[in-house]
Design a protein around this nucleic acid. Sequence first.
DNA 1: ATGAAAGCGCTAACAG
DNA 2: CTGTTAGCGCTTTCAT
Lengths: 319, 319
Amino acid sequence: MASIKEVAQLAGVGIGTVSRVINGGSVSENTRVRVDEAIRKLNYVPNYSAQTLKTQRAGIIGLFVPVFNNPFFCAIADRIEAQLNKEGYNMLVVCSQEDKEKEVRVLRLLAQNRVDGAIFITHNELGTIDETLPLVTIDRHLGKDIPCITSDNYESTTKAIELMIEKGSRNVAYVGGKPMASSEVEMRYKAYLDVMAKYGYEPIVYYKNTKHGQDYSVAHDFFDRYGDRVDAVFCSGDTFAYLLYQFAVQKYEIPSQFRIVSYDGVMQNWVGKPDISCVKQDIDKMAQRVVEALFMRINGEKCEKKVIVPASFHIGETI
Amino acid sequence: MASIKEVAQLAGVGIGTVSRVINGGSVSENTRVRVDEAIRKLNYVPNYSAQTLKTQRAGIIGLFVPVFNNPFFCAIADRIEAQLNKEGYNMLVVCSQEDKEKEVRVLRLLAQNRVDGAIFITHNELGTIDETLPLVTIDRHLGKDIPCITSDNYESTTKAIELMIEKGSRNVAYVGGKPMASSEVEMRYKAYLDVMAKYGYEPIVYYKNTKHGQDYSVAHDFFDRYGDRVDAVFCSGDTFAYLLYQFAVQKYEIPSQFRIVSYDGVMQNWVGKPDISCVKQDIDKMAQRVVEALFMRINGEKCEKKVIVPASFHIGETI
DNA sequence: ATGAAAGCGCTAACAG
DNA sequence: CTGTTAGCGCTTTCAT
């Protein structure tokens, strides 16, 4: 592994000059050519750790997710990675998955300046966050000054549920993961309750915690408990909706007897059918905003505390 | 951000002693306590870049995938991340996604020793690989000495297709992504051809390149072209199978009139139903083997060139 | 424009 | 057992 010193020697210049060539300092055309040639000959690539140590810039952003094995997380991770790359950054992924020790390690990563900033999509609790590191979250409230990028959860959910009622549903249940931390996702729940209250319907809430993916048993469980008194369900996430659909379609005429609406809308093109009606988050734009906000923090610019990316309603075959 | 120097000063010792405390060298109980206290007081965390520069060990492994937004990749990424963490490593993700520039950047990462090793699940072409960096692949042939972890593609596929035939299918089509690079996945295709030849059936092959997820149109396209002469399909990947199922179920009695078998078996618990029959890869074990092999390379130990993790056949409702 | 030199924060070898 | 010292490879003054 050639070092800058060897390049300098081969080119017959000082190491400072080589550095200038690399980083675009002022160098005479003549020497630049010689240095470039030496670089090429030695197949030289600057040592990243040395650069980082000196410049205090790692070129890496941490992404913290609960698990990776989930359509929403990996859809947004995919877009975030693409965005970060445009800015010349790489993405380090940490899955905080129900692991207390890991939380500690996460915090160490932050403190150790292995990353220049971090994005949280975690729903787990976290220890004290390093105040100095630029942070941004998706959906999550992490601290006073930490920007949160989210969709218009309350409005979108309200509209969705009102539409279900308008179409004729009377007993709409709410199905979602149990909130583990303060998050904008709760707004979906709140919207649900508010609409129920407004129409004078009794809310039916089914919470279920997601671990390594959901499985079909939740559908059985849900219908065992509420099957006799619901005629529609709003799911705070795609997986629930798909699972419930598979069960419901065997018993009901959909949508006339049973309506389903989900939130997220990322599983559609993985599965094709059923075309579940859903509040579709604008993943691309969210990823964009997340990265934008993060870089504002990194550059010390002021940045809104909450950025709302409107979601759209997708009319599928289940409403 | 406190440095080792400050800790040494506060504890009234030399920096070497502090380093020894951190890295477990021999230090008297007395001084160890004093140093520990200073560390705590200053909230000191060793600077990662400095450590890396000195030790030449980054504690980061690169994972290269074509896209992230795919059930198989993210399932295995999830398990790999967990494995790496056990070993005290973090995972840096790069999505090589149809981007020539990105390829160059990937290679730079490798050369720059930003990572201590890398795992490739990429199906894209790649430039010349740095020979010095420890590498391992999943399913992919990258070079003579680069270990490849894979499932028993040929055997599993053979068994699957023979089972389809045994059940009564005569016109089994093969559906998969077009191979972009030499990969063990081709063994599925080869197995298919061999079985067809053995029984004297004419092979029907439908290749389709995957970009950002598949969509339902492939199902239309496939059935437009081959619908009148197939009675079964073997899919080299879950997404194809799900999409084709949704279409097929409207026209055929499944499985009596139309059989579907997929390879991977990771989408099941995201979707619940249909319970597609499939060759189920042992994702957990594969991730384990991948990381094992990688660390053997990192530690300079000899390691098998090909590690085969047997897949199992899952009998669902489509066979 | 460019060479020399000072460090970034750490580890490890060397004295003592 | 412990303090001192020499780099790891790079960027960035500071002279020249």
